[in-house]
Write a protein that binds this DNA or RNA. Structure first.
Lengths: 187, 187
DNA sequence: ATATTGACAAGATATTAATAATTGTCAATT
DNA sequence: AATTGACAATTATTAATATCTTGTCAATAT
């Protein structure tokens, strides 16, 4: 029972991820998701209360997956700069690439959706966690959360000036380098 | 003749600035501008080839004014950090405040307008000029223009997370501090 | 019983055609 | 020589209509 229900839900989220990623929030219907998942529309409503819940589940799943990926990768790296650089390039260019491939998917990064806002909050936490020790050790007066916020939303601004993914990563690298150098207490 | 023509043009740009600032690009008509300037619509077309030329003139004038203001202010300040901080707070919160007062004025910051793009390029130049010497002295491998670009578009990203002008300036201060500390060669 | 769906009302969104407003121009007027 | 009224072309607005979509639930199937 519980098992079957979980699996059905996972199937639906998987299907929803595909269609939301391609067509964005506005241009995908519950019918599209249900069809892709091989179930009827009312069956989908048995699993999720409404469309936004499906959307939130998709966003959350993508986010968790990305975080697992990032955490695994940076565990194998040494030093704040290398870790932060990888995390930011990976996280930051993800959205860029997706939108380049499917313009409608820009919805998935619209901060008006609470689920999307949470993605940004989560990444801000990841960054803050990474830099916290070094910020404290260097005796910097700015809270790690604020530094992280500047980096994360700074990266968001970069999207408007970068012409392609490669340039995006280049600019992200500069932002990260600025942050790390600024808290590298002249070591 | 030339004198009279220049004065008429200035009058028109002055009028256009008022109405574009309040209603944005889309919601102001050439009729609005002409009326505000106390001339007929065809008379306005004698001064400017089309609407976008008027818009560009408005943007350029605002930009030049802001730059004069900034240059005058930072001439009286000492040190890169103080100069850059003032420049960025002044430039960055200008747009924020205008949009808060008149939501339609968001047009004036739409990067799809070439005139607006130029505003960003100009401020990038100002920043690059300010930091150039210190970047070279510190032997940093990143070109000043790229660092400046990251700061300018980083600031743009901050707009999406700041709730008010005060917070915006706080975050700008962090960005600026990050940049300056990162090129302060442990002096 | 439980799981599933067809069919529905309410609301949102797209379509269309008709109307109005705006732009850029130029011959006519001052 | 400077200015404008009036025009064609384009673009935006409106209103009426049709279509789609959402979320629900009684009816059906398992």
């Amino acid at each position: 029972m519980a098992r079957s229900s979980i699996s059905k839900e996972a199937l639906a989220v998987e299907a929803a991820t595909e269609v939301f990623s391609r067509y964005g929030h506005a241009r995908t219907t519950m019918g599209d998701v249900a069809a892709k998942a091989g179930m009827s529309r009312p069956a989908l409503y048995l699993l999720f209360p409404d469309k936004d819940a499906v959307f939130a589940a998709v966003i959350q799943r993508m986010d968790e997956q990305k975080h697992r990926e990032i955490r695994a990768a940076i565990a194998r790296l040494d030093g704040l700069h290398a870790k932060l650089l990888h995390a930011c390039k990976s996280w930051g260019s993800h959205g860029f690439d997706l939108i380049e491939a499917h313009p409608d998917s820009a919805d998935l990064f619209d901060l008006r959706f609470p689920a999307v806002r949470k993605v940004y909050d989560n990444f801000q936490c990841l960054v803050a966690d990474l830099i916290r020790d070094q910020v404290k050790a260097a005796g910097i007066a700015i809270e790690p959360e604020v530094l992280a916020r500047c980096l994360v939303f700074g990266m968001r601004g970069l999207r408007e000036t970068a012409r392609n993914g490669k340039e995006m990563r280049r600019l992200i690298a500069v932002q990260v380098t600025m942050l790390v150098r600024s808290i590298d207490d002249g070591s």
